[in-house]
Amino acid sequence: MERCRIVFSGSGGQGVITAAILLAEAAVIEEGLNAVQTQVYGAAARGGATRSDVIVAEEEIFFPKVLQPNVLVCLTQEAYNKFYPIIRPGGMLITDPRYVKIETKVDARQRELEMFRAVMDRIGKPIVFNICMLGAVIRLTGLIRPESVMKMLERRLPPAFMDMNRQALQIGIELAEAA
């Protein structure tokens, strides 16, 4: 596989960093790949701009930050405005039109997925928005299998929350397939 560099960006509280960790953890523990996850630590808490970098590869990863992502996920306008210039030419930009209005043409495949609306329509709980986004990312990149993400979730969540998360992951996968 090609080395994949992903930047997840959004607003504190959207679960952007949790999604990044889940992806990288599943890649290492369930798929036997190498992965490194870093995040920007600022004074930002809920509401502030957040960014997390993930690199997934078969070989060892040394420099752990992402300078030019193959995949850029922006879940707020602020994040999009700040990060769209760094996307690797030919890469993929994933946004949700509820939060991001794409203003500039970038040299990337642009996937505008109505993830938030689908989650609210079909589940009604915004808390799994990030898992829906993760479903779209793994479907669009083919990096890891959905079951691997579910296994990581099983370790963290009480059983009562699993159905909601499984459903959110599936919605993300379906939105990606339709895009």
Partner: peptide
Amino acid sequence: DEVVGHMREK
């Protein structure tokens, strides 16, 4: 250092 301390890997 901060990078090694905060970074996640295997």
